[in-house]
């Protein structure tokens, strides 16, 4: 039986694969317009705003690399390695222009440090984070748009 594909536990409602391609889901305060990711649900965190109504928004699918690094050693639990033995992966902090914010994410599989530079364009993809017995847990990742290998 094929494994079910589910958002990684803890990231339910944080991103979507429906509609016009994958996107992170945030909220926008209907009072002041501030965008939040992960979603703000109760009170607006703008100190000058007493808003408490939010609409769900899809964040920009493309952004530019603000900075990046990698994880040469396996992080401790609750991290779950996708492979045995552990394979290092890259992490990027990505600036989204419209939202004027930086969002972290792992870098898409098959891409590493050599494919990244500050200022380079990346786009959002959804890929497996790890698999367990029943399911493939998926998460958003950042993928270089120029195919990498600068």
């Amino acid at each position: 039986m094929p494994k079910t594909r589910i958002p990684a536990v803890g990231s339910e409602g944080w991103f979507t694969e429906d509609g016009e391609g994958p996107a992170l889901l945030g909220t926008r305060c209907t009072t002041c317009g501030t965008v939040f990711f992960p979603k703000a649900g109760f009170f607006c965190r703008n100190p000058d705003c007493d808003g408490s109504d939010f609409e769900e928004v899809r964040l920009s699918r493309r952004g530019t690399v603000w900075s990046y690094t990698d994880a040469r050693y396996q992080p401790p639990p609750p991290f779950v390695s996708a492979s045995d033995p552990y394979q290092p992966f890259a992490i990027a902090a990505v600036q989204l222009a419209d939202e004027n914010m930086v969002v972290l994410g792992q870098v898409a599989s098959g891409f590493g440090l050599d494919d990244l530079r500050v200022g380079a364009e990346v786009e959002l993809v959804v890929e497996p984070l790890f698999e367990d017995d029943e399911s493939v847990q998926v998460i958003w990742k950042w993928k270089p748009t120029d195919g990498g290998r600068r």
Binding site: G10, W66, S67, P75, P78, F79, I91, L104, Q106
Partner: peptide, 28 residues
């Protein structure tokens, strides 16, 4: 299992350790 704790989530969803953040600043 504490998926409502951002400190738990960053390890699970990103594999982001403390050195990850230090390294982002350094690369910057």
């Amino acid at each position: 299992e504490r998926p409502d704790d951002p400190d738990w989530l960053r390890f699970r969803l990103l594999g982001a350790t403390n050195p990850t953040y230090f390294a982002l600043y350094a690369r910057r």
